[in-house]
């Protein structure tokens, strides 16, 4: 039997958005100085990373910039072994890869990012991790390639 006709289609939807006043400073610092910047609530002093203009607890403005990390603590993690379509590339991200919540030193919030470890026996909550920066940084969150366990 002849192979049935298949229609192949690729929907590509490119878009741009403004990082805003706080996001812009955050990404500029990443790109230029490899510094991870947070912003502190003027009332409760929680340090938000990524930065945001208003505290989610107090609704008070966040004004004071502080550097956080670069090291932090692994709070939770998973190893992704199921390959699925990454909408940013339209391709499957090669598996396995580690993924986890990182609380940077000095920050009140957690970042979700890639972990440079896929062996469960080497992963546990509370591990110290540090960011691995890209050589050629472009001013976006991928300027941090991943977090690596501090041995």
């Amino acid at each position: 039997m002849k192979k049935p006709l298949t229609i192949a289609y690729r929907a590509v939807l490119p878009f741009q958005y403004s990082a805003g006043r706080m996001g812009s400073r955050f990404f500029n610092e990443l790109r230029e100085n490899k510094r991870i910047m947070a912003v502190k609530c003027s009332k409760c002093a929680r340090a938000y990373v990524p930065p945001r203009p208003v505290c989610g607890y107090c609704y008070a403005p966040c004004e004071q910039w502080v550097e956080v990390g670069p090291e932090g603590e692994l709070i939770g993690y998973t190893v992704v072994t199921f390959s699925f379509l990454d909408p940013l590339t339209g391709r499957e991200r090669p598996v396995p890869y580690g993924y986890g919540y990182i609380q940077l030193d000095g920050a009140a919030t957690r970042l979700l990012h890639f972990i440079d470890e896929t062996d469960y026996s080497k992963l546990r909550p509370g591990l110290r991790v540090r960011p691995v920066f890209k050589e050629k940084r472009e001013g976006n969150i991928a300027d941090i390639e991943c977090f690596r366990i501090v041995s």
Partner: peptide
Amino acid sequence: VVLSSKLEI
């Protein structure tokens, strides 16, 4: 900063 992104399906 203007971030470029896309969805590709």
